[in-house]
Simulated scan of single mutants.
Amino acid sequence: MKANKAAVLTVAEKCKNILASNWQCHLSTIKADAKGSKGEIYTSKVKYIVKRGKPYVWVPESDAHNVNAIIDERGSLAITTPFPGPLAHLLKSVQKLPSRIALTGDVVLLKEKKAQLATEKLEALILSEQKAVNELSYTVRGVLSSTNPVFTSRSENLQGLTDGGENYNIYKFDLRSCTYLSGTGGTHEIDLGELQTSKADSLAPYSAMLIDGINQSESRRRALVLFCFTYLNARVKDAYILSLDRKGTDVLGKVPNPTSNEQFQWKEFRFTFKEEAPDVEALCCQLVEMEEEAIKKVSSYSGLG
């Protein structure tokens, strides 16, 4: 099952999915004091949402970014594809980085009225995602049953911004550039016009939950092994979901190392869906259908079907 141009997202769409699937990023600003900018970079992890294609970041009042941005508004955001649970350990063990984006722009403090509007948008987003999860079908809830939402749910992690436990300043991030860095080390500069017109998958906010739900389940990982064998004729010993989008899924499979009969290596495979999955329900249904089809094929090979 070879991917073609129609079977993969554009790079701009991948960037939008990364923005929509994560909720935290590394914000960097230029260190400053009363005498002005020092030229050194200060970085900390902050949480964000996307409104009309633009990131809005919540910075604790005690964070040095608040002083830095007064003197020099220039900043950058580094955002990765979420890689929760066992996937994080696997990527670290094979020294593989997830796909990520680097944004440069201006960090602009929101005044009281606009900050209130951003807060209302955040609260509406949290409620909307929580309602959507509660209304998921039995099939999807089964996939998510293996994950811990404390680590993988965007709405769960953004909830802390509204509970009154800490005071925040809210900033709009005005983009000046966007760079996509693939997991294989490739770098792509993205046209901001193309980025603006591209849309994120509606399932992107739930991708971390889906990926971890599958990877935490031994039975579902065995299904991925069947996928590799029946669809790509690849014999793998183990497999993990690396990423999901409306057009397909990327899987890391443990395959024999051609340089040694006793060692294995991890190889990336791409599976394309028969039809685009517009939402979480459709994606999970396609995965279930692929699993059933793979089991039938394996059964027929072994003479059991």
Rank of each mutant, 00 (worst) to 15 (best):
Y48G: 03
W23G: 09
L125P: 02
L232A: 10
A69M: 02
D201I: 01
E112M: 01
A124C: 06
K31V: 12
I41G: 08
E73C: 12
S243H: 05
I49Y: 13
V67Y: 10
P256V: 02
N22V: 03
S137E: 05
G105N: 00
S28C: 14
P60L: 01
S198V: 03
C285W: 08
L175F: 04
P256M: 07
S137R: 07
G160D: 13
E194N: 07
A204K: 04
L304H: 10
H89I: 08
D201H: 03
Q265Y: 09
T179M: 14
V57Q: 01
P278D: 05
V298W: 04
I70R: 10
V108N: 01
I49K: 08
E292P: 05
D106T: 00
V11M: 11
K254I: 07
D201A: 00
A7W: 02
Y301N: 15
V107G: 00
L127S: 13
V108A: 00
R141N: 14
L181F: 15
N4V: 12
N22P: 09
S302M: 15
I241N: 04
E268Q: 15
A132V: 14
F269E: 06
G186L: 02
A78R: 12
V57K: 03
I41C: 09
S93A: 14
L252S: 04
N134G: 13
R100H: 14
L19I: 06
R154A: 12
E189F: 06
N257W: 05
K51A: 13
